Simulated scan of single mutants.
Amino acid sequence: MKFLLYNICYGTHGNQKKLPLLGMLGRTSNHLDEIIDFIGELNPDVVGLIEVDSGSYRSQRKSQVEEIAEKLGHFHSYRSKYASDSRWQSIPIYNKQGNAFLAKDTIQNEKYHYFERGMKKLVIELELEKVTFFLVHLALSYKVRQDQLLHLYHMIKATNRPYILAGDFNAFLGEKELQLLQAASGLQNADPSLQPSYPSKNPRKHLDFILHSPKIKINKFEMPRVELSDHLPLVVDFDIIDTDANEVNQ
């Protein structure tokens, strides 16, 4: 199975390269088509998208998730990154910002959790037939991130299925911010070489992670050097280890 994690910067990075503020305020224009073509060429089974627009003026009032899903023929799951009672829901543009999953196979179940602290509080839990995915975009504040990671630990330990935890962790201190979470949960980093993913033009910071439970076997990890966003995409090919049958399921 192939999984792609990608912070797509609302499809505005073509503008952001000219003027940073346009990453928030600029229009998608035709840049989203380049992202869709890139995803289509990779042909992943599951996609975790960070920073997608659900229909502001920036994306010509169209849902980027629905547009990507329709063109790729995928099922999709989307939710605003801000809780329903958040003040950010009353602010234009912000109330159209969220995260999403795309999947080739039928989605068995989806849950939307929200952290107690932070501006960005969303955790999407997606269940496919044999594996569960958690998608996050953590806070910019170190102290708030640590609270979110603790909350996340209690959330993921409740599952007894093979699972992947992925997202933009905003871990400005790198993997050491996640050491306690990994030690307590048994999560492993899909990228043992710890490559930086941000900014895409000259990566220096390791902000994006794909972590996995022991019953996931990583066959290949790659970080394609494309500049369609301010983040590089992360791609893994993996198998699910069937311990009962003592074999690996494709």
Rank of each mutant, 00 (worst) to 15 (best):
M1T: 10
M1Y: 10
K2Q: 05
F3G: 02
L4H: 11
L5N: 03
Y10M: 09
G11I: 03
G11C: 02
G11P: 10
G11L: 09
T12M: 14
H13T: 12
N15F: 00
N15R: 12
Q16Y: 01
K18I: 13
K18H: 11
P20G: 08
L22T: 01
S29E: 06
S29F: 07
S29Y: 04
D33K: 09
D37S: 12
I39C: 05
G40S: 15
G40F: 04
L42I: 07
P44M: 15
V46E: 03
V46W: 08
V47I: 15
G48S: 01
I50Q: 03
E51G: 01
D53E: 09
G55W: 09
G55A: 13
R58H: 03
S59Y: 06
S63F: 02
S63D: 06
V65E: 03
A69N: 08
K71G: 00
G73I: 08
G73N: 08
H74Y: 14
H76I: 12
Y78V: 14
Y78G: 11
R79K: 15
S80W: 02
K81W: 03
K81A: 07
R87L: 15
R87Q: 15
W88H: 06
W88E: 05
Q89N: 07
I91R: 02
Y94P: 02
K96F: 08
Q97W: 03
G98T: 05
N99Q: 08
F101Q: 01
L102I: 15
L102C: 01
A103C: 07
N109W: 06
E110P: 02
K111S: 10
Y114Q: 10
F115A: 00
F115V: 01
M119E: 14
M119W: 05
K121E: 13
L122P: 00
L122E: 00
L128Q: 04
E129W: 07
V131K: 05
T132E: 07
F133R: 03
F134N: 03
L135W: 02
L135P: 06
V136E: 00
L138M: 11
A139W: 00
A139C: 00
L140R: 13
L140Y: 10
S141C: 02
K143H: 11
R145D: 01
D147A: 02
L150M: 02
L150Q: 09
H154C: 03
I156C: 04
K157N: 01
T159M: 11
N160S: 09
A166W: 00
G167N: 13
F169I: 14
N170I: 04
N170W: 09
E175G: 06
K176F: 10
L178F: 11
L180T: 14
S185L: 04
G186M: 08
G186R: 04
L187E: 04
A190R: 05
A190T: 04
P192K: 06
P192H: 00
Q195L: 07
P196Y: 07
S197A: 11
S197Y: 09
P199E: 00
P203L: 00
H206N: 10
H206D: 09
L207P: 00
F209R: 13
I210Y: 07
L211K: 12
P214G: 06
K215M: 01
K215H: 05
K215Q: 13
I216P: 05
K217Y: 11
F221T: 10
R225W: 05
L228C: 15
D230N: 12
H231D: 13
L232V: 08
L234W: 12
V236G: 00
I240M: 09
D242E: 12
T243G: 04
T243N: 10
D244H: 07
A245F: 00
V248S: 02
V248N: 11
Q250P: 04
